[in-house]
Amino acid sequence: MALPPLSCSPLVKDDLVYPLTCHVANNLLAPVKSQRDILENSMLEDDPNGNCAGAVVPQVTVGPRWGPQHRGAQELANLYSTGKRTQECICVGICLTLMAVNFAFILFYIRLEQLSTILVAAFCGIVTADFGSGLVHWLADTWGSIELPVIGKNFLRPFREHHIDPTSITRHDFIETNGDNFMVTVPFLARMLWDFLTLSKEDVQNKFPWNCYVFLLAIFVAMTNQIHKWSHTYFGLPSWVVFLQEYRIILPRRHHRIHHVAPHETYFCITTGWLNWPLEKMRFWSALETVIELTTGVKPRADDLKWAQKRT
C-alpha cells in the first residue's frame, strides 16, 4: 500500500495556498529523507494521538520509541536543576537589558546613507547565526556524554531529551527554552555596548556596519531556540509565525522534521534552515564525522543512541 503524501503544513487550511513554496521546500530543496523515512523513523508531532507510537510499526512489545512516556526522556527531564534554572534566568535578564540599550544606541547613530551596507551586514549576521546554530547543534547531538562534568547535565542533556521527546520543548517556558542561547550572546553585546560608550563618534560610525552585523547575529542566536520551539509547535501558533515559516524566513516545521528522522544525522541548522541543503549536498557534517572517528575512534551519536534505547 502506498503511503499517504505529507501535506506542506497542517496549519494551512487549503493545501493550495502556497503550492510553489511547498513544492520547492518539500521536493526540490529537501530530498535528503523520503516520506517513508519520515513516517517510519520520526515522531508524528502533528498527530496529538501518535506521540508515543511509531507511525507505521505499532509498538506492542516494548516501550514507546518517542514521546513523554519514554523512560530515557523522563530520566533526562528530571535532571533539570534549580541551579541551571537560576543561571538561565540571570542570562536572559542580562541579555535583554544589553539588547535594549544597544538598540537605542543603534537608532541614535544610524544614517540613511549607510542603509545598503547595514542591510548586507544584517543579512550576513542572519546567515552566520544559521551556520552557528548548525555547528553547535551538530557538536552537541553527535559528541560528548551526559556524564561529562559541568557540560553534560547542564548543556548536553536537553539535546538528548529532545531527540526522544521532540515535543518536550513545546512544554518548556521562555526561560528554559532560551536561557542558554541568551547566555552565548552576552559577551558580544557587552563588547558592543562598551564600544558605544567609549569610542568617539567617528569611530562609532566607522564600526557601525560591524556592530549591526553583531547585533543581528546576537538577535538570531538568542532567538534560535524559540524559532526551534515554533518548528515543533503544530497547533495554536500565531499567524505571523506561520507566515514566516511558510516563506522560510525562519525554520519551517516540515523542513525541520527531516532532522528528526533517526539517527538525526542531517539538517542541523535551526535558525532559518537556509544552509541545511547546501551543507548536506557538500556532505559537510558526515565528512567531519568521518575525520573525527578515524582520528579518535569515537563513534558519532553513541550517547544519543544509548538514551534512545532506554525504552522500558
Rank of each mutant, 00 (worst) to 15 (best):
E113Y: 08
S168L: 07
F155N: 05
T142G: 08
P158G: 05
D173E: 07
G67M: 09
R111S: 11
F123Q: 14
A122L: 04
P149V: 09
T185M: 08
A100W: 06
F131M: 13
P158Y: 08
N154M: 10
H70C: 11
V92S: 01
A190I: 04
L189K: 13
L96K: 06
L96W: 10
I175D: 02
Y109T: 02
F182A: 02
L119C: 11
H163W: 05
D180F: 14
A129I: 03
I110A: 14
E88H: 08
L148D: 09
G83C: 00
M192G: 13
L135E: 08
W143R: 07
A122F: 02
I94C: 09
F123D: 06
A121I: 05
E75K: 07
T185W: 03
L107M: 13
F108E: 15
F174Y: 15
A104R: 14
H137M: 06
D180K: 08
C95I: 04
R85P: 00
M99L: 14
S116Q: 06
L139N: 00
P149R: 10
G179D: 03
E161R: 12
V120P: 04
M99I: 13
R71A: 15
E75Q: 07
W143V: 09
H162C: 00
Q69I: 01
A122N: 02
L119E: 02
I110L: 13
L119D: 04
R157E: 00
G134F: 01
L112R: 12
C89K: 15
F131N: 01
P149Q: 11
C91H: 01
D165W: 12
C91T: 01
G144R: 13
F103N: 07
W138L: 00
N78Q: 14
A190C: 12
F182S: 01
I164C: 15
Q69Y: 11
Q87D: 04
S81N: 05
I169R: 00
P149C: 09
T128L: 10
L98I: 12
M183G: 01
F108Y: 15
P68N: 09
M192I: 07
G144H: 12
R171Q: 09
F103Y: 15
E88R: 00
G144I: 10
L76V: 02
I118C: 12
E88K: 01
F159I: 05
A129R: 05
P158R: 08
P68V: 04
T82E: 07
P166Y: 00
K84N: 03
F131I: 14
P187N: 03
T82C: 01
F159N: 10
V150I: 15
P158W: 04
L139A: 15
Q69R: 13
V92I: 10
I126F: 12
E147I: 01
Q74R: 12
T170R: 02
W138D: 03
F174D: 03
A73W: 00
S168I: 04
V127W: 09
A129P: 06
F182T: 03
Y109K: 05
E161M: 06
E75C: 00
C91S: 15
F105V: 02
D141E: 01
R71I: 02
K153D: 06
W143N: 09
E113K: 08
W143T: 05
L148T: 10
A140N: 14
T170G: 14
T82F: 10
S145E: 14
R85C: 01
C124M: 12
A73D: 00
Q87W: 03
L115M: 11
T170W: 01
A121T: 01
W138G: 05
Q74T: 05
G144C: 12
L115T: 09
F103D: 03
A100M: 08
